[in-house]
C-alpha cells in the first residue's frame, strides 16, 4: 500500500505532467502508480483528470489554446493507456464501465479535433467508446447505436455546411430508440440549433468541447469521491 505522501507525489506528477504536456513524466508516474499499488482509478481521476481540469482553467484564462490542449491530451492518453487496463471492476464502485457512446464527425466534415477531445472525456470517464472517425455516412450512426446498444451518440460538425446532417441522424436514432441521449458539437452548433434538431446537449467548438468535457470529468471525479465515501 502506497503511503499518503507518495500517493500525493505520484498524483501531483501525473497532474503536472498533463498540464506541462510532459509525456515521459506521465508515463514514469503512471508506471510507478501501478508498480507501487496505487489504485489506477485514483491515478486517473485525481492525477490525469485533475491535470486536465487545470488545463481547462488555463484555457478559460486564455493562457492555453488548442495546440496546448492537444498536447496535454496526448500526455493524458499516455497515462490512460497504462492505467486503464488495470482498472478494477469494483474499484470504489467507480471503475465500472459507465456506459457506451458512439461518436463521430458527420458526413461531409473531415475536422475531428473537437470530436477527439470529447472522446477523451468519455475515455477518462470510463465509457466504452465506439469511434466512427470522420466523414461518417449518416445512417452509420444509427446502425452503430443499434449494434452496440449505446446510451449516448455524440455527433460533431465543424461547418454550417455539414451541420444539417445532424438533424437527419437525430431523427433516425430517435425514431428507433427515443431514449438515446444525443450530444452535438462543433463551431456552428448553438443551443437553439441543438434544440431545433432535437438533441439533448451541445458544445460549440473544440475549445468549448474541452470546457464541456472537463466539466463532465469534474462531475465524474465528484461522483467517484462520493462513491468512495459511502
Amino acid at each position: 500500500m502506497v503511503s499518503e505522501e507518495r500517493r500525493k507525489e505520484i498524483l501531483d506528477n501525473l497532474s503536472e505532467g498533463v498540464v506541462e504536456y510532459e509525456e515521459d513524466r506521465v508515463v514514469e508516474y503512471a508506471t510507478a502508480a501501478l508498480e507501487e499499488g496505487l489504485d489506477p482509478f485514483d491515478a486517473i481521476m485525481n492525477g490525469l483528470a485533475a491535470g486536465m481540469e487545470i488545463v481547462g482553467d488555463l484555457y478559460d484564462r486564455q493562457e492555453y489554446f488548442v495546440p496546448e490542449i492537444l498536447m496535454c491530451a496526448d500526455a493524458l492518453y499516455k497515462g490512460l493507456d497504462i492505467l486503464k487496463p488495470h482498472l478494477k471492476k469494483d474499484s470504489n464502485g467507480a471503475g465500472k464501465p459507465k456506459g457506451q457512446v458512439v461518436i463521430g464527425t458527420v458526413q461531409g466534415d473531415v475536422h475531428d479535433i473537437g470530436k477527439n477531445l470529447i472522446k477523451m472525456m468519455f475515455d477518462v470517464g470510463g465509457f466504452t467508446v465506439h469511434d466512427l472517425g470522420r466523414d461518417v455516412p449518416l445512417e452509420k450512426f444509427a446502425e452503430e447505436q443499434l449494434r452496440t446498444d449505446s446510451e449516448i451518440v455524440a455527433l460533431s460538425a465543424m461547418m454550417t455546411t455539414t451541420m444539417m446532417g445532424m438533424k437527419k441522424v437525430i431523427a433516425m436514432i430517435k425514431e428507433k430508440n427515443p431514449d438515446v441521449a444525443i450530444m452535438l458539437g462543433g463551431a456552428p452548433v448553438t443551443k437553439d440549433v441543438a434544440k431545433l434538431f432535437g438533441a439533448d446537449g451541445y458544445a460549440e467548438s473544440a475549445g468549448n468541447a474541452v470546457q464541456e468535457a472537463i466539466k463532465m470529468i469534474g462531475q465524474l471525479r465528484k461522483l467517484g469521491e462520493e462513491a468512495a465515501q459511502n
Binding site: 458526413q107 461531409g108 466534415d109 473531415v110 466523414d135 455546411t161 455539414t162 444539417m164 446532417g165
Partner: peptide, 18 residues
Amino acid sequence: CTVYADAEGILYPTVPSK
C-alpha cells in the same frame, strides 16, 4: 476530393486524404 454525388441534399466537397 469527395463530392458526395449520391448524398441526399447539399454537401460540400471534402479532402479525403491528408
